[in-house]
């Protein structure tokens, strides 16, 4: 029997369950390796070579190289693990979280100062809140070079 996933109707949200964990095992363990200063240095010196030491999928490696955290999460990444990449890049958790919304850093920071993203319209898929699929990307960063 497949896992029961009552959380699949929440917009803009991926729950890190056993299926995601299995999919992302090597990606997340790669992230974990960045907890060591010498590994951070080796990764920074040659990212692709360092990634090639891990049995990750090509999509996972490309998502890391692109620093596309939504893509990383779709490939099984978990944000607490992915945060180690951000730390290696000297990014704050706010910069990382914001990068997944399509907003610029400033737009996202302003949203938080004004009380954060509203829950209204963002509880269930099919509503009309700003986290719904038909309203992406949300900000100027996501529209850069877009059409």
């Amino acid at each position: 029997m497949a896992l029961d996933k009552p959380y699949n109707d929440i917009p803009g949200t991926t729950i890190f369950d056993a299926d995601q964990s299995r999919l992302g095992y090597h990606l997340n363990q790669f992230c974990m390796s960045l907890m060591k200063a010498e590994n951070r240095a080796r990764f920074k010196a040659d990212e692709r070579a360092y990634l090639d030491e891990w049995p990750m999928t090509e999509e996972q490696k490309l998502a890391v190289l692109a620093r596309d955290l939504n893509r990383c999460i779709a490939a099984g990444g978990n944000i607490y693990f992915l945060a180690k990449i951000g730390a290696t890049d000297s990014k704050s958790f706010q910069q990382m979280a914001g990068s997944m919304t399509g907003m610029t850093e400033e737009e996202y920071r302003d949203m938080m100062i004004k009380g954060g993203r509203s829950i209204e319209g963002n509880r269930y898929l099919g509503e009309d809140g700003d986290a719904q699929p038909h309203r992406q990307p949300q900000g100027k960063a996501g529209q850069k070079g877009g059409n």
């Binding site: 929440i10 917009p11 803009g12 949200t13 991926t14 955290l69 939504n70 999460i73 944000i79 958790f93 990382m96 979280a97 914001g98 997944m100 919304t101 399509g102 996202y108 949203m111 938080m112 009380g115 954060g116 993203r117 829950i119 963002n122 986290a131 699929p133 992406q136 990307p137 949300q138």
Partner: peptide
Amino acid sequence: SHQLQGPRAGLINAEW
């Protein structure tokens, strides 16, 4: 309340 991932990142629900 907080969400650190995906397009719903930044969610806050003060009333809840």
